[in-house]
């Protein structure tokens, strides 16, 4: 019987440079914990998940920026972070594509889940919306993430 590989068992020590990001990542973790434990009272059912999405987005963005924009972390560290769930690899993969540079969450471009096979309202550029129309998408509470905004 092969050994069962749990994430805990297979956890390797983080590569060099992790201690630079550790504080910030810890902050994100704390925020995430707070969001998870926050009360749902007074919120709509779909609203409860918004902060989770937002924090995930922020943390992924942070790591994405560090690796691709600022080039401040090494490739092994980046891979380690992705592997250990500090950033959403699927989301980052979308950010690298043209037109998706600011994408809020992968769910918002998932056309198969909508009634008319369309993307989320937050993907609509602001100039194509009606004047003064204020939107917040149901999936993640995004207020608009079109690249042209």
């Amino acid at each position: 019987m092969p050994p069962i590989r749990t994430s805990r068992a297979s956890k390797k020590a983080p590569p060099e440079g992790f201690d630079d990001l550790e504080d910030t990542l810890l902050e994100f973790a704390n925020k995430m914990k707070d969001a998870e434990n926050a009360s749902h009272e007074g919120k709509k059912k779909y609203e409860t998940l918004w902060p989770i999405f937002q924090i995930t987005h922020q943390r992924s963005r942070y790591i994405y920026d560090l690796y691709y924009e600022k080039e401040a972390i090494s490739r092994p560290l980046y891979d380690w972070l992705l592997k250990n769930g500090y950033a959403d690899a699927a989301l980052i993969a979308k950010w690298k594509k043209q037109g998706y540079e600011k994408l809020c969450c992968v769910r918002c471009i998932q056309t198969k889940e909508t009634n008319f096979r369309s993307t989320c309202i937050c993907r609509v550029p602001r100039e194509q919306l009606k004047e003064g129309q204020d939107i917040q998408c149901v999936n993640c509470g995004c207020r608009g993430c079109a690249s042209s905004d």
Binding site: D20, L21, D23, T24, Q58, L66, K70, A72
Partner: peptide, 9 residues
């Protein structure tokens, strides 16, 4: 400031 902190922080 540490260069590794995000701008918002």
């Amino acid at each position: 400031v540490s260069p590794y902190t995000p701008w918002d922080t």
